[in-house]
Amino acid sequence: MKRQEFYLKLADALEITSTTLSSNTILSDIDEYDSMGVMGIIAFVDENFDVKLNAKQIASITDLDSLINLIGLGKIEE
C-alpha cells in the first residue's frame, strides 16, 4: 500500500474529519481517536496488512510513523 493511500484509508477507518493525516500526526491528538478508535486501528491493520496489534503495541503508538513501524516498514511503499 502506498503511503498516501495508507493515510486516506486510516482516516476513513477512524472516520477522521478534523485532521489531515501525515507521518507526524500524533494519534492521541486526534479528536476522533478514543476507545472505539482503538478497535478501528486493530480492524484496519488486520484487514489491510494481516497484522495483529496487541493492546500494549496500540498504547505505544505515538505518531503515524510509529504505527507504520509496528505494521512493518516494508508493507508501506514510499
Binding site: 478497535m39 486493530i42 493492546a55
Partner: peptide, 22 residues
C-alpha cells in the same frame, strides 16, 4: 493501555478481547 481499572470491579481489556475474537 489507558483502560479503567478497579480490582474490586470488572476489568475488560477491550483491544485484547477484540484481538482474541478476530
Amino acid at each position: 493501555n489507558g483502560i479503567f481499572v478497579s480490582n474490586n470491579h470488572l476489568y475488560m481489556n477491550g483491544p485484547e478481547i477484540f484481538n482474541f475474537t478476530i
